[in-house]
Design a protein around this nucleic acid. Structure first.
Length: 350
DNA sequence: GACACGTGGAC
DNA sequence: TGTCCAAGTGT
């Protein structure tokens, strides 16, 4: 066994097995040295943060069709971008996406910076994304460390230190492995490897191009790496939402505050969400409220939510204390974050 | 370092 | 059903 796997072997494997994705250039162009559009690389990398390729594809197509350049995106309305992001999760990404686009236009003449250092100054761009954009869009030998790379490095070098304490050591290994040639393809190759072969459960070691150089494979420990600190259990929080339909078909919605959970997104007015029972609150408009028989259930990263749904039909002349009515023709439950959409689906009986 | 921050698919 | 997990960042 070699001390270090060969990055060239992985690149050859990648040339034959690269997954097709809308933000990647095809094999023929790549062979000619054509680099992908930095705007598209950046967009895809933001969307891919903690999110699967399958979930991202359609969102990426819609965003780039609607806003083909960073200048187009910078000129977009906040509400349109948030509505387009609805359902993808981690909504701070969407707020930072727009902030970043406007920053690139005003401070960089609409041209994405090409160094890790400069990329790190952009909103929503951290160490991973800066490295990914620098290597994939600008052919720079940046170190790219995501969850896949952490897992692959932990296995190749049989590192048993649990995450996140192991991160510096794994990053060091990843940096030492990164080749000067085709760093962007190499980064994507390791991530493809982690997503398709060196998977968290049941890794397909028999298909791995690095099998003969992998220390965990030799030790029989691949499937149990990387070690992780156990997670805390999720508490259950309760809340109430109010779905008011006006007689003309309009719905009462509010734009949530920019900070915090579902920040900047549309939602049904309601109570806060707390353990035990929903906190005291007022209805957003005077009406004959009826409570649905079942609750809307949803699970966030760190708690389970059970929403009591109250509904009412209200006359034209009533004024809400919070939010605003959205006309029937402008209403689309697809513009709501999933927890809010579930409450609506329960109300409609779907 | 620890925690907040979404969602849907896999097992 | 419940838990784990995915191309992380900001505070």
């Amino acid at each position: 066994m070699r001390d270090w796997p060969d990055s060239a072997e992985l690149l050859t494997f990648y040339d034959h097995n690269a997954r097709k994705m809308p933000w990647r250039v095809g094999p023929k162009e790549r062979a000619k040295g054509v680099l992908p559009d930095p705007y598209r690389v950046w967009m895809s990398e933001i969307m891919l943060q903690q999110t699967t390729v399958a979930a991202v594809k359609d969102y990426f197509e819609r965003f780039t069709a609607r806003w083909p350049t960073v200048s187009d995106l910078a000129a977009a309305e906040d509400a349109d971008v948030m509505a387009e992001w609805a359902g993808l999760g981690y909504y701070a990404r969407a707020r930072n996406l727009l902030k970043c686009a406007r920053y690139v236009v005003t401070e960089h003449d609409g041209v994405f910076p090409d160094t890790v250092e400069a990329l790190l100054t952009l909103p929503g761009v951290g160490p991973y994304t800066a490295g990914a954009v620098a290597s994939i869009a600008f052919d720079q030998p940046a170190t790219v460390v995501d969850g896949n790379v952490e897992r692959v490095m932990a296995r190749v070098f049989d590192i048993h230190t649990p995450l996140p304490a192991a991160k510096p050591e794994l990053t060091e290994k990843a940096a030492a492995m990164t080749p000067r040639e085709r760093p962007g393809d190499y980064a994507q190759a390791v991530m493809d490897l982690g997503a398709t072969i060196c998977t968290p459960r049941n890794p397909a070691c028999g298909l791995c191009p690095w099998r003969s150089d992998c220390k965990a494979q030799a030790a029989g420990t691949a499937a149990e790496l990387p070690k992780k600190i156990p997670k805390k259990p999720k508490p259950i929080r309760h809340g109430v939402v109010y779905i008011a339909k006006r007689v003309d078909g309009a719905y009462l919605l509010e734009t949530r505050p920019d900070s915090g959970l579902l920040g900047g997104m549309l939602g049904w007015p309601g109570s806060g969400w707390t353990e035990g029972h929903a906190p005291k609150h007022d209805a957003p408009i005077k009406a004959e409220w009826k409570t649905l028989n079942s609750e809307a259930k949803h699970t966030f990263t760190h708690f389970h939510l059970r929403l009591t749904v109250k509904t009412a039909l209200v006359p034209m002349d009533r004024k809400p204390s919070v939010g605003a009515f959205v006309l029937e023709d402008d209403y689309d439950s697809g513009n709501l974050p999933t927890a809010m959409r579930k409450a609506f689906d329960l109300y409609r009986g779907t």
